[in-house]
């Protein structure tokens, strides 16, 4: 890789948040709030990309990490009156810890077994939300008190504050992903993805690397979950259901696995696909399904992955 390539990548990663920053002044209200939500969900997808894209581990349980953040922030606010900032930090810690615990067990497996084990843990967590329904209000969920949804004295319900917070979160995850992609840590992860045995032979503690990757991924996913609870004011089991384990997979595959900007692009594309299609037909899932099939037929590596392969090899 040339130095020029590095520069271009870094520039691109600075340009995207800058563009998103500028966009908020010209976007109509509806797209303004959509973009804020897409940035939060894209952060979730970016967290997922760390294990799926960079490390090559297909998890079907990331809803539990998103949910860990969602519920840590939400329950602490609801029952202990903890405000957004400390709630956010605690949620990230909870996500990392939870992911590490799951990882200690689940990373003993690989491939499809790993997929099932993560799926099972996530399902158990989802059912636990119902079992402790007296506190979580299970599927119905609860509304986070408005007076606690404040960050540094600013109301997170305010559109500008929300957009800024979402942008800050997104820029943060982008920086994390950029760092992972560029660091020696990231290169070891890629080596594990390409050939785990060889990496082990080279003397790397593969298990430890995977565990750190999963914990990092869990932390980022939980950050997105906490942000969702605080920015949009709702916490419910539906947001921790299996669907929310499939979504990040979908978004990442759509945008391009193991690309830094792929998760964002995939999330954005899926959102507008559903939103536009549902406008003229109630059978919009049909279009979404067909779009997914067309995508893998013609862009099998996702949009950015294909682009990188064919035209822009320097793309991170």
């Amino acid at each position: 890789m040339t130095a020029g390539g590095l520069d271009r990548a870094a520039l691109l990663h600075l340009a995207v948040p800058a563009l998103l920053f500028a966009l908020q002044f010209v976007l109509p209200d509806y797209h303004h709030v959509n973009l804020a939500r897409v940035m939060v969900l894209a952060s979730f997808a970016a967290g997922y990309n760390i294990v799926f894209g960079y490390t090559g581990l297909l998890s079907l349980g990331h809803a539990m990490f998103f949910g860990a953040g969602l519920y840590t922030a939400g329950l602490l606010a609801q029952y202990a009156g903890v405000a957004a900032a400390p709630g956010f930090v605690l949620a990230i810690l909870a996500g990392a810890l939870f992911a590490a615990l799951v990882g200690i067990l689940a990373l003993r497996t690989s491939g499809v077994s790993f997929m099932i084990v993560t799926l099972m843990f996530a399902q158990a967590a989802y059912l636990a939300l119902h079992y402790f329904g007296d506190y979580t209000r299970s599927d119905e969920g609860f509304v986070v008190p408005a007076e606690l949804r404040r960050l540094f004295g600013l109301a997170l319900a305010d559109p500008a504050t929300r957009y800024f917070t979402a942008l800050a979160l997104f820029t943060g995850t982008l920086a994390v992903c950029h760092a992972v992609a560029r660091s020696s840590f990231g290169r070891v992860l890629a080596a594990i993805r390409e050939n785990e045995e060889r990496t082990r032979m080279l003397g790397y503690d593969v298990f430890a690397y995977k565990l750190v990757a999963l914990a990092l991924s869990g932390a980022v996913s939980a950050a997105a979950g906490a942000a969702y609870a605080m920015l949009f004011g709702y916490v419910g089991a539906g947001l921790a259901s299996i669907q929310y384990s499939i979504y990040p997979l979908l978004w990442v595959l759509m945008g391009g696995a193991a690309t830094v900007l792929g998760p964002f692009l995939g999330t954005l594309a899926m959102f507008y696909l559903v939103d536009t299609a549902s406008g003229f037909t109630s059978a919009y899932l049909f279009l979404v399904g067909l779009a997914l099939i067309a995508l893998v037929l013609f862009f099998p590596k996702g949009v950015l992955g294909t682009l990188r392969e064919r035209a822009l090899p320097w793309l991170p």
Partner: peptide
Amino acid sequence: DPEATIVATIGLLYVIQQAALS
């Protein structure tokens, strides 16, 4: 391809489900 088929069959899932609903 393992990954591509996962996405494709998710797409198929939506198509079949919507066809049944419609």
